[in-house]
């Protein structure tokens, strides 16, 4: 029951955040460029323009225009891209898959490597391997994504010639979703972009998991677990790891949202045909509807991941949602 209450509260919060994002998106439309110029060009007389303005409702008050914007947005209509001459959302949706696959690739790399490496460094804080990893992680965090990307391309594509440096490679369409995960060529193309996208989050997560786990290992309940004579595996990977990962999940969810922002850089360097790539082009072309569509879609992804993570977190952590319940 409490969980339901919590979930409803969390969903209301998410909706409010989405409203704020839409308001920002709409303000951009209001401020950026003149839609009429894009539609009719320079050669039309001032009277015709005024008439068109009136027809399109551009002279209405801000609230009225915003209400119209929202009504349309709810029906998934964010206007047509000036450049592509088709609905902006459709353009974004076409590119969404490529970006998501990049994010999934990077997330997989992060999850697969950060947990074992972070745990190893927490259990053996004094070993030289841990020290090397900790030093490298600082380097990884401080080097900008695009530098890492260029560096990776230089080594693995230019010098060694092992990895392709641009594009998605072969994709297979799977019920409308074109995926590169199922072809060898697609996977091959995914490696470097995913690595560079993960290059900041991976060291961040390794450090986070290490720090959390070291703190957990000092607690009384871990000492008690040792005093019960449990085998190391169980103390480390059940008692300690479970308590370590719970807070990491929350941070993790937020960070995966943030990663979408970094895709703009990665996609540009690797000419990855995703949303970020299109977004940069849209900015160059002052393609306002496309810019807004991107902001709203990314905002939505962000809000959804955060909400889902919160809901899952409080579902798996017995102590979180039950605040206020008497023992």
């Amino acid at each position: 029951m409490e969980y339901l209450q919590f979930a409803v509260k969390r969903l209301v919060q998410a909706t409010i955040v989405m409203f704020v994002i839409s308001l920002i998106g709409f303000s951009i439309q209001d401020k950026l460029g003149d839609p009429l110029r894009e539609l009719v060009g320079q050669s039309v007389s001032e009277e015709v323009r005024d008439e068109l303005r009136e027809q399109m409702g551009l002279n209405d008050s801000f609230p009225v225009q915003y209400a119209r914007f929202i009504t349309k947005a709810v029906r998934l209509d964010l206007g047509n891209s000036y450049f592509f001459k088709k609905p902006a959302l459709e353009v974004i949706a076409d590119k969404f898959q490529a970006t998501m696959e990049l994010v999934i690739g990077a997330t997989l790399i992060i999850v697969v490597f950060s947990v074992p490496v972070g745990v190893f460094c927490a259990i053996n804080p004094k070993s030289w391997i841990s020290r090397v990893i900790m030093t490298l992680s600082i380097v990884g965090i401080s080097v900008p994504v695009f530098l890492t990307a260029i560096f990776l391309i230089y080594i693995f594509s230019v010098e060694l010639g092992w990895m392709p440096s641009f594009g998605r490679g072969d994709t297979i369409s799977l019920g409308g979703w074109s995926t590169g995960f199922l072809t060898w060529d697609g996977l091959h193309h995914l490696v470097l972009p995913s690595l560079s996208l993960a290059s900041i989050m991976l060291p961040l997560f390794i450090r986070l998991i290490r720090a959390e786990m070291m703190e957990v290992l000092e607690t009384d309940y871990i000492r008690f677990a040792w005093a019960k004579g449990l085998v190391r595996r169980r103390v480390w990977f059940l008692h300690a790891l479970k308590n370590t990962l719970l807070p990491v999940i929350t941070v993790g969810g937020v960070q995966i949202g943030t990663m979408i922002a970094y895709t703009i850089l990665t996609e540009t360097v690797f000419q990855w045909p995703g949303m970020g790539f299109v977004f940069l082009e849209a900015i160059n072309r002052v393609d306002t509807p496309l810019i807004i569509a991107y902001i709203i879609v990314v905002g939505l992804i962000f809000v959804v991941t955060n909400t889902v993570v919160d809901l899952i977190y409080s579902l798996v952590n017995p102590t979180v949602r039950l605040v206020g319940q008497k023992p």
Partner: peptide, 20 residues
């Protein structure tokens, strides 16, 4: 440990693992 010699800690609020 925990088999032939067991231990009881001071603070029961901290001794049990909160997530198990």
């Amino acid at each position: 440990r925990g088999n032939r010699i067991s231990m009881i800690f001071q603070d029961p609020m901290m001794t049990l693992n909160p997530v198990l």
